[in-house]
Design a protein around this nucleic acid. Structure first.
Length: 217
DNA sequence: AGCCAGATTTTCT
DNA sequence: GAAAATCTGGCTA
């Protein structure tokens, strides 16, 4: 059992050099990108009183929404809401769901093709207390366990929609800070269309992974 | 650990 | 006007 708050205090130096993953390093294929992102570092930079503060989290669960996928928001074609899914891979797609949650995705495939990857869960690495401050959660493992919780903990809002996350900025992706474990696959959560497709990826055994136990084996 | 209802608003038909 | 890539708290056991 590895807990984020232990890692932060014992393993991680206070400041370290992170470099963003270049777009050329990202697989173009949505399912491959979803798998690739497991173990990578999600970086959120927040401006507070003139200084920049970082939140770092390790991605532990993703879902792919692929071309021609009836469950994907891009399936109906490009609209005002989903246009970011049609950008070149590596751009944020943020939408508002169930009247109270933001969902963070990254675009996949070629420019003009609608597809993306949903960030479903992450393990806090740095700034866990700040992440917790954005929520009212008590269990540290659940701070960013679930797409709505993740977005809330990382302070992700619709203002980040369309952002290129392959460059240093308010939100970007960096190389892993710790090796990735075994990656497991399941069907996706919370959808009704194309619900049988094995497009959910997660790090097996990681306590920050969301979803019912029977889907996490 | 699992089931259920209620919250709440954007988006598209 | 209905559905939605969800979360929380309360209940049962």
């Amino acid at each position: 059992m590895t807990f984020a708050f232990l890692l932060e205090s014992h393993f991680m130096p206070r400041s370290r050099t992170l470099h963003p993953l270049r777009r050329s390093e990202l697989p173009q294929d949505a399912a491959e990108l979803a798998r690739f992102l497991i173990g990578k570092t999600l970086v959120r930079e927040l401006r507070r009183n003139g200084e920049t503060r970082r939140i770092l989290a390790r991605i532990v669960e993703t879902e792919a929404y692929v071309p021609g996928d009836a469950a994907a928001h891009s399936f109906i074609g490009q609209t005002a809401r989903n246009r970011s899914l049609f950008l070149e891979r590596g751009h944020a797609y943020v939408y508002f769901c169930y009247g109270m949650h933001y969902m963070l995705n990254v675009s996949a495939e070629a420019e003009g093709t609608g597809a993306g990857v949903l960030f479903r869960a992450a393990e806090p690495l740095e700034g866990a207390e700040r992440m917790q401050g954005f929520r009212t959660a008590r269990d540290p493992r659940k701070i960013a366990s679930g797409p709505g919780r993740l977005a809330r903990a990382m302070h992700v809002k619709r203002t980040l929609d369309g952002l290129d996350i392959t460059h240093v900025g308010p939100l970007w992706i960096a190389a892993p800070l710790r090796p990735v474990g075994e990656i497991a696959i399941s069907v996706r959560i919370g959808i009704t269309k194309e619900a049988h497709r094995p497009l959910r990826f997660f790090e097996r055994g990681n306590p920050a992974v969301s979803g019912p136990r029977h889907m996490n084996e």
